[in-house]
Amino acid sequence: MNKKLLITGAILGVLGIVLGAFAAHGLRELVSETAIQSFETGVRYQIYHAFLLLILGSTNILKESSKKVVYLLVLVGVLFFSGSIYGLATDDLTAFNFKQIALVTPLGGVLLIGAWTCLLINFLKVQKDN
């Protein structure tokens, strides 16, 4: 599980940097400043959660089952939250109307909150300092 967490964290990090560079350089002439700011919000949250997965994969404080739950919540949460923001910010550039799936964004946010809540609950259950 640790290797999966580390690899996924690294992939999310790489993609976050690529997408951030794309927003800074490739989108400037194509979408509004508001859309760029939204896109950058998606990138920021993706990078935050890439770090979370890297940290989680580097520790043995939590049980494997708890790590799996956090992993799934983060993965789907980032996909829904950041992914939908990327789509909404570039909506004018595509044939697909991302506004039809705008409710996916808050669902993704709830999943990310769930991941952090799961971490908190599991940290509170830890009996001793490791």
Rank of each mutant, 00 (worst) to 15 (best):
K4R: 11
A10D: 02
S32E: 09
A35M: 11
L79C: 10
L62Y: 07
K3L: 08
L79N: 06
Y86I: 06
G42W: 03
L103Y: 05
L111K: 10
Q46M: 14
G108D: 05
A23V: 10
F98E: 09
L54Q: 11
T34A: 12
E40W: 00
F81D: 13
L56M: 11
A102K: 07
E29L: 03
G77E: 11
S38C: 01
G16I: 00
Y86L: 08
L15N: 09
G16C: 08
Q37I: 07
L62K: 03
I113L: 15
S84D: 02
M1T: 07
L93M: 09
F80E: 01
E64I: 15
L56R: 07
Q37L: 10
I101N: 03
L72P: 04
L72H: 13
G9M: 07
V69Y: 01
F39W: 05
Q100L: 15
D91G: 02
K67M: 13
V18D: 01
N2F: 04
L12G: 05
L88S: 02
A50Q: 09
L107F: 10
L30H: 09
G13Y: 01
A102Q: 09
K4P: 01
I17F: 10
S58R: 12
I113F: 08
K128V: 10
F51P: 10
T90P: 11
V126H: 07
T105D: 02
G77S: 13
V126P: 02
I7H: 02
N60I: 00
T90C: 14
G26I: 06
L52E: 06
T94M: 14
I121C: 00
L119S: 08
D91I: 01
I85T: 09
R44M: 11
V69L: 14
L15F: 13
I55D: 04
R44V: 02
P106C: 03
K63A: 12
